[in-house]
């Protein structure tokens, strides 16, 4: 076999190796995800996100970081309850579940309005003052009983 034949054969063999690393990228639509905010209203941006598929909450299906607006999207590939965990590495974060229906139907967005901050403060203060009032009353009764025991 002469040298040129050898070169031609080797080129054919190695070019198939190059072909096996071809890449095809297409744009897709759809998917679901979350948008996370602190209760100040600021987005939880660039925070660690982990997505778990239904029935496998141990090995992550996907992990990444939220975008600048606190959002993260993914494409579920099976129906069931998906779990998303957000962690901002300062001790804040949370878990949410997304129910994906048959035919991978994506659920509508959550419209339930969370309790406003003013209401939270008001309800908390009310509970505290209520409990304080009860304690005050009970202690006063006890002091009075102690006082009357001392007299008798």
């Amino acid at each position: 076999m002469n040298r040129s034949s050898l070169i031609i054969i080797l080129s054919i063999v190695f070019s198939t190796a190059i072909f096996s690393h071809g890449v095809d990228i297409v744009t897709i639509n759809g998917g679901t995800g979350i948008e996370a905010k602190y209760d100040t209203g600021d987005p939880i941006s660039h925070a660690e996100i982990t997505v778990y598929s239904p029935g496998n909450y141990k090995e992550p299906f996907q992990s990444g970081v939220t975008d600048r607006n606190g959002r993260f999207l993914f494409s579920p590939d099976s129906e069931g309850e998906w779990k998303v965990v957000i962690n901002d590495w300062t001790g804040h974060g949370g878990t949410t579940k997304i129910k994906v229906g048959p035919n991978l139907k994506i659920p509508a967005g959550k419209t339930e309005k969370p309790l406003g901050r003013g209401m939270k403060i008001l309800s908390g203060i009310s509970v505290i003052l209520g409990i304080t009032g009860i304690l005050f009353y009970l202690m006063a009764v006890r002091e009075r009983e102690r006082g009357s025991d001392a007299h008798s």
Binding site: D42, T90, I121, T132
Partner: peptide, 28 residues
């Protein structure tokens, strides 16, 4: 002392619900 403690508890409770954003995008 109890009313004073109750007011302090209300103060602490409210203070902890007020957060401010810090460098790095998180809030404390």
């Amino acid at each position: 002392r109890i009313p004073l403690m109750g007011l302090s508890a209300a103060f602490v409770f409210t203070a902890q619900l007020l957060s401010f954003p810090v460098f790095g995008g998180t809030s404390v």
